[in-house]
């Protein structure tokens, strides 16, 4: 089913079209939710809520960009709204609090490639992780991140800097990437 057909069907609240759209985009979107959520169950809850928003607001899609990008924005905002409901998340945006968190490297799974990188991201404190996900992966500017998370733009920048340093450290220790920093590359790719 083409994207146009799926869209037309979804606008008519056609269940088959909705399922086709869901099947096409849900694996990648669940990956997005998984990077933000606490665990798989949490991510699936976010995905469910996000796709309900997608289908109920699909008439607002203007065909001005990729459908996947539009869906992704809704999913990301759903994840952020979910996180903001959690008091612990608000606390974690406090840099002083986050600094004291210790990462146990042994807990990082030793499986390869994309999942390993994602699991390393998930080892970060939730505040760091969220800012890093939004900036480095989703491509939101710090100004927009600050607005989304109700924090200062400078806080977003410093959270990102610290998150990046912490993640780099983990990835280097796990031999997923190599230093020097200006030559970061996958170890596996070189080996």
């Amino acid at each position: 089913m083409t994207e146009e057909l799926m869209l037309a069907g979804c606008l008519k609240n056609n269940a088959a079209s909705q399922e086709a759209l869901y099947n096409r985009f849900s694996p990648r979107m669940l990956g997005v939710c998984y990077r933000f959520g606490k665990n798989r169950e949490d991510a699936e809850d976010m995905l469910q809520e996000g796709f309900i928003k997608v289908f109920t607001q699909i008439h607002q899609y203007r065909n001005e960009g990729a459908l996947e990008g539009w869906i992704r924005r809704i999913i990301v905002h759903t994840c952020i709204n979910n996180l903001k409901k959690n008091k612990k998340f608000a606390d974690s945006l406090d840099i002083i609090h986050a600094k004291s968190i210790y990462i146990n490297e042994e807990l990082i799974p030793s499986i390869m490639q994309a999942k390993q990188v994602v699991e390393c991201i998930r080892m970060l404190p939730i505040g760091y992780r969220t800012v890093l996900n939004l900036y480095a992966v989703e491509g939101y500017p710090h100004k927009e991140i600050a607005a989304m998370l109700d924090i200062e733009e400078s806080t977003s920048r410093s959270q990102y800097t610290r998150a990046k340093a912490m993640l780099e450290d983990i990835l280097v220790k796990k031999k997923i990437i190599q230093k020097p920093k200006d030559r970061i590359s996958l170890v596996a790719a070189q080996g």
Partner: peptide, 30 residues
């Protein structure tokens, strides 16, 4: 490069949701 690596690897990452998710969405929509 580091950000590029993160972006690439994160975009590659896929997870397949359980059937429960679609059923819940379907029940909510219909």
């Amino acid at each position: 490069d580091f950000e590029r690596l993160l972006k690439e690897k994160s975009d590659e990452f896929r997870m397949y949701p359980s059937k429960r998710v679609w059923y819940s969405i379907y029940n909510d929509l219909h």
